[in-house]
Write a protein that binds this DNA or RNA. Structure first.
Length: 227
DNA sequence: ATCCTGCAAA
DNA sequence: TTTGCCGGAT
C-alpha cells in the first residue's frame, strides 16, 4: 500500500493551477456553456484522438448532428462517413448511435445514479467521470491514460495494469482533483500531460515538478543536467 | 514505430 | 485480461 501525502497533493494542485494559468489550452468545449449533448459529443470525439484534431472537427459535427435525435435517425453509413476524418469511425458510429438512441429514450436526461449512468451504451468510466465533473459539477477525475501517466510519474507508479481498477491510482486521482475548482485542476493535468509530461520525450529538464517528481528523481541519471 | 482526454467484444 | 478500432501528427 502506497501512502498518499496530502501536503504533496496540495503542492501539486497549487503548482499545476499556476502552470495552467500561463500555458493551459483553451478549447471550445471548455469555455462555452454547452448542452449535455454537445459536451458528451466532445468527450466521445476525444477518445484516443488528439484534442487539436477534435477542435477542428467539432463545430461541423455539431452543425450536422445538433442533438441526439439527428444521430439516432441517421444511418450507420451517414455517421461513419462523417466521422471518418477523426478515425475509429466504424466502432464510434455504431456506439454513438446506440448512445443516441438510449438518450432519446431517456428524453435527453442523464441518470444521477452511477450504476445506471454507466449502463448507458458508450458511457464507460471515463465519460461517466466527465459527466459528473462538468454536467453534475462533482469533483471527479478525467482519468485517462494521460492523467494516470502524470500522477504516476509524480506520485509513484501503480500496481495494476488497468488504470480503471487500480485502487491506489483511483484514490490518488480523486484526492488530486478534490479542489474548489476541480474542473481547472483536471484540465490543467490533461494540458500538462499533452505539452510537458508526454508519454514520449517528456520535458523533464524544464519541468516545474522535477525537484519533487518520483519519475525524475528515479531517472535523474538519464536526464543530462545542464552545466 | 508510437501515441492521442476509451470502450466493448472476444 | 487482451485486442481491435483508425486517421493524423511526431
Amino acid at each position: 500500500m502506497i501512502e498518499i501525502d496530502q501536503a504533496k497533493i496540495d503542492f501539486f494542485q497549487n503548482e499545476i493551477l499556476n502552470w495552467y494559468s500561463k500555458f493551459g489550452r483553451d478549447f471550445y468545449w471548455r469555455k462555452h456553456n454547452l448542452t449535455d449533448f454537445e459536451y458528451i459529443i466532445a468527450e466521445v470525439l476525444l477518445q484516443r484522438t488528439k484534442a487539436e484534431t477534435v477542435a477542428k472537427f467539432y463545430p461541423s459535427f455539431i452543425s450536422r448532428f445538433p442533438d441526439w435525435q439527428y444521430i439516432a435517425n441517421a444511418s450507420d453509413n451517414e455517421i461513419e462517413d462523417f466521422l471518418r476524418p477523426v478515425g475509429l469511425y466504424t466502432q464510434r458510429a455504431k456506439r454513438l448511435k446506440s448512445l443516441a438512441k438510449e438518450m432519446v429514450k431517456r428524453d435527453g436526461k442523464l441518470p444521477r445514479d452511477r450504476q445506471v449512468l454507466e449502463s448507458i451504451p458508450f458511457m464507460g468510466q471515463y465519460i461517466a467521470n466527465a459527466v459528473e465533473l462538468v454536467i453534475f459539477k462533482q469533483p471527479s477525475p478525467l482519468m485517462d491514460v494521460n492523467m494516470s501517466r502524470v500522477l504516476e510519474r509524480f506520485f509513484g507508479e501503480r500496481k495494476l495494469a488497468d488504470i480503471r481498477y487500480d485502487p491506489y491510482l483511483q484514490e490518488l486521482a480523486y484526492k488530486v482533483v478534490a479542489h474548489p475548482n476541480s474542473k481547472k485542476v483536471n484540465w490543467a493535468i490533461l494540458d500538462f500531460a499533452a505539452s510537458v509530461c508526454q508519454a514520449r520525450k517528456p520535458k523533464c529538464n524544464s519541468c516545474i515538478f522535477k525537484a519533487r517528481c518520483s519519475y525524475y528523481l528515479n531517472n535523474e541519471s538519464i536526464f543530462p543536467t545542464e552545466s
